[in-house]
Amino acid sequence: MDDPKKLAEFQEKIDADIKIEPRDWMPEKYRQNLIRQISQHAHSEIIGMQPEKNWLTRAPSIRAKKILMAKIQDEAGHGLYLYCAAETLGVSREQVLNLLHEGKAKYSSVFNYPAITWADMGAIGWLVDGAAIVNQVSLQGTSYGPYSRAMVKICMEESFHQRQGYEVVVSLAKGTPEQKQMAQDALNRWWWPSVMMFGPHDAESAHSNQSLKWKIKRESNDELRQRFIDKTIHQGEILGLTFPDPDLKWNESTGHYDYGKIDWDEFWNVVKGNGPGNKQRLNHNIAAHEDGQWVREAAIAYADKINSKTKTA
C-alpha cells in the first residue's frame, strides 16, 4: 500500500499540472497503468506498419510509394520513442516485447482489420490516423513527462499522415465511378473500427476514472470520440461520400453529431483475438523478431570486438 502522505503530495502535484518525471515518487498503480498504456501504444505503432507494408510494392506511383515508406518509417520511430518512454518506468525492452509476443499485451484492435484495396491506404490515413491524432493531441497533456514529450514529437510528425490519407481518398472520390465506389467501400469498412478506437463508453471503461484523476488521460473516451466524429463528417460529405451510420445526424441543440449504436460485441471479439487479422499480425511480428536474432547476435559480437580493441590500444 502506498504511503498516504506521499500519495496526497503526488495528487497535489498532478492537480497543479506539474509533470511527473522518471525518478519522482509515484504510486505503484500509476506506474503500472502507464506501463500498460504506453507499451500498448508503442505496440500499436509497430503492428500498425503491417497493413501498410502490404501496399508498399503495389502503391500506384513512385510518389505514393515514397510517401508510404516515409509514413511507415515514422511509425517505427513512434513505436521506438514510446518503448523508451515505457522503459523509464523500470520495465525493460525485452519484457515489453515478450508480453506482446505472449499475447499478454494489447495493441489497437483496428490493426486487426485487413487492408484489401488501395483505397484502404487512404481510409487508414484519414480515419485511423485521424482518430489516433485526436487521442494523441489530448495526450500531449498527460502527467508523465517522458510520455508527454514523446506525444508532442509524434503529433508533429503525424500531421502529414492524415493529410496524405485524405489525399488518396480525394483522388479516388474525384475519379471514375469505380474509383469513387472504392473510396466509399473503404469508408464503409473503416468507419466503425475507427470510431471504436477510442475504446468502451465512459461508463464501461475499466481504467478511465483513475487515469483521469491522475491525468494519465486528459479527456474521456466518449469526449475524444465525439470530437473525432464532429470533425470528420464534413471531410467525407464534401467528397460526396456517405457514412455507414443511418443514425448519424447533426444535433442543433448539443452542437454535436448524434451517432448510432456501436457494435461492442464486435469490438470485444476483436480485442479478445478473434478479429480477421489478429493471428496473422502477431505471428508476423514474432517472426520478424525471431528472424532478427542473428542480427542482434552479430551486432553484439561486433560491439564486443570494438570494445576489446579500444581497451588494448
Binding site: A70, G77, Y81, C84, R93, R149, R296, A299, I300, A303
Partner: peptide
Amino acid sequence: GSLHAYDKKMAMTSARDLYTR
C-alpha cells in the same frame, strides 16, 4: 529522447534516422 544500440556507430546512425528525419 533515447534509443537502443549495440555500439557507438550504430547508435549514431539510429539517432540520425530516429530523431532528424
